[in-house]
Design a protein around this nucleic acid. Structure first.
Length: 243
DNA sequence: AACGGAACCTGAAAGC
DNA sequence: TGCTTTCAGGTTCCGT
């Protein structure tokens, strides 16, 4: 399956957008990889034995002539590996990638203003921004002092700017933690994520946990303020005096 | 169209 | 010491 489509070919390009990786081969075939929750690519010796959660391996010859083996590990099997001859739909519908493209406040404002879902849910929509998941959305909204349950279209002027700064802060923090952890283990640099029941690092109030769009969501009820849609009277609701 | 909830899996940690 | 429950960095499908 994978082997048949890939064997003997040369890797032309590897790029990441959001949570997807695209490995392009010299004949135009592409291998798409999504890690799901527990997926990971690791490098091993060519002779290294198969590991418990190993789902795939690519053995290759590097440009310096050395042989190398990369293994795809994924205990929960939520990740995906897809071979195709053109870009897959999941790839094509990805929104701007914060690192590759930057975040444009105006277009994010527009995308969020079109949705009525909870703002945290909207931020995790991969067509809004590529790569934002539960951690970054949770941390960014904590930093922005916005209640994650606020409706996306209820954000006030200036809120999207705060969210963008929150996202940049969260991404920078997470990348720095990655460097420290050196791919092994997990460094907890989070202010809210995973700290439900503990004091908010900013105001000391106890962090709350709710479920939003099926995902655990931690936030501070005191300093993350809920935005509400302004109650706007429409002609249907007012104007005509009852007889 | 858009929402909530369940399903897909395995494993670690907490609860009893 | 077990046995059960809960939770997990994500996405997709299904019913309302």
């Amino acid at each position: 399956m994978l082997g048949r489509a890939l064997a003997g070919k040369r890797v032309r390009d590897v790029i990441r957008r959001g949570k997807w990786l695209r490995i392009e081969l010299d004949d135009g075939a592409r291998l798409f990889s999504h890690l799901g929750m527990t997926g990971n690519w690791v490098q091993r010796d060519v002779d290294a034995p198969k590991e418990r959660s190993e789902r795939a391996r690519l053995d290759l010859v590097r440009t310096d002539g050395r042989r190398s083996s990369v293994r795809y590990l994924d205990s929960r099997r939520f990740g995906r590996l897809i071979v195709a001859n053109e870009d897959i739909a999941e790839w094509k519908k990805l929104g701007p990638d914060p690192l590759a493209d930057g975040i444009d406040v105006r277009s994010l404002e527009e995308a969020l203003g079109r949705r009525r879902r909870a703002v945290k849910d909207a931020l995790m929509d991969q067509s809004v921004l590529a790569g934002i998941g539960n951690i970054l959305a949770t941390e960014a909204l904590w930093q922005a002092r916005i209640d994650p349950r606020s409706r996306s279209d209820a954000l006030a002027p200036g809120d999207v700017g705060k969210i963008v700064r929150g996202l940049r802060w969260a991404i920078r923090k997470e990348l720095a933690a990655r460097d420290v952890a050196e791919s092994e283990g997990w460094v907890d640099v989070f202010s809210a994520y995973g700290h439900a029941g503990e004091p908010c690092p900013r105001c000391g109030s106890t962090l709350a946990r709710v479920v939003l769009a099926g995902r655990g969501t931690t936030f501070c009820k005191r300093c993350q303020v809920r935005r509400r849609v302004r109650a706007r009277a429409t002609e249907r609701h007012i104007g005509r005096p009852h007889p």
